[in-house]
Amino acid sequence: MNISVIIPFFNGFDFFAETLLSIARQTYNVQQIIVINDGGGHEAEEFLSNFNGIKIINLEKNQGPSAARNIAIKLVTSEWIAFCDADDIWQPSKLEQQVKFMSENTIFSACHTGVTTFNQEGDIATFIDKPYDLQLSEAIEISYVTPPSLLIKKSALEQVNYFDTQLKCSEDHDLTIRILEQGYKIGFVNQPLIKVRRMNHGNITSNGRNILKGNLQLFKKNYHIYKRYDGARTLFLYRAFMTAGGKSQGLERKILFTIGKVISLTNPHLR
């Protein structure tokens, strides 16, 4: 399997070397590593030029990770694509185990892995309890697939028209839904093969308001799917408001939690 790795880069100076090293140390070699300098200007260009073995694409203006990934996807020459963020870490056997999984389970067009979140103090949590064969009815509930864990056929991304650049927070969740809706299958390797950094260094998910806005955009866009499944709409909205509340403070936190609890009263499974 020929694999290209895509890394959006915007102000990721502090951790990029560690991220790139984790890819270089993979026990399965990649065909190319494409780094998209997403509007970081000359400073980012100069910084990235210090690293060997990467293809750099410089964008004049910051367009966000979805647009950056889409630009790189269209330039990829390999059949398979893996994504990594500029501050996350792959375990050495990540790709090897995914390639083995895909070779043994040819029904899948993509697979993702378990995740360990961490910060400057150490590991926070590990997530390996996910569906082996993700179904659309499961995918609309919560976001199971995080891009740095995903290995996918380029043709599947082309078929669903890439990441939606209009979504600013839930674009990975939306991509998963559209992949499954088109009939592609996503498998799961139940080992924590990536480490996702959780720090207050501009990560959009640290802002409860942005999380809620992204989730509501996702819900509106895919409403035709949510209404197919009994209770799916209220379950998603409940989780959206409760998650946003957990990322908020003060009065806003109380309001979001209250709305979530009111929504739960309309769903017997949440009472």
Rank of each mutant, 00 (worst) to 15 (best):
I57S: 02
I33V: 12
T19E: 00
N58Q: 06
T19Q: 01
N62V: 15
K55H: 06
F51E: 00
K61W: 00
F16M: 08
D38G: 00
F15I: 00
E18A: 10
I34E: 03
N29Y: 14
Q63F: 13
G64F: 06
I57Q: 05
Q26A: 09
I23A: 06
L59N: 01
G53N: 11
D38T: 00
F51I: 01
I33M: 07
S49H: 10
E18T: 08
K61G: 00
I56S: 08
I34V: 05
Q31L: 12
P65F: 09
L59R: 08
S22V: 09
N62R: 15
H42L: 13
I57C: 04
Q31K: 15
Q31T: 13
V30L: 14
K61T: 01
K61V: 02
G39C: 13
E43Q: 07
F47K: 02
G53M: 10
Y28V: 01
E45G: 12
R25W: 10
G64S: 05
I54S: 03
N29P: 13
L48T: 01
F47W: 07
S49F: 07
F15A: 03
V35C: 01
T19V: 02
S49L: 11
E46A: 15
P65M: 08
G64Y: 04
A44Q: 10
I54E: 02
I57N: 04
L59H: 04
Y28C: 02
I33H: 03
P65Q: 09
I34A: 03
Q26P: 02
A24C: 07
A24T: 03
E45A: 13
I34N: 04
N58V: 09
F15V: 03
G40F: 11
F47Q: 02
H42I: 15
N58F: 08
F15Q: 04
I34H: 04
V35N: 00
A44K: 10
Q31A: 14
K61C: 01
I56F: 11
P65V: 09
P65H: 10
D38N: 02
F15H: 04
G39V: 14
I33K: 05
I23M: 07
I34T: 07
P65A: 11
E43T: 07
G41Y: 08
L48D: 01
Q26Y: 08
A24S: 09
F47R: 03
I54A: 03
Q26G: 03
F51T: 00
G40K: 13
G53S: 11
G41N: 06
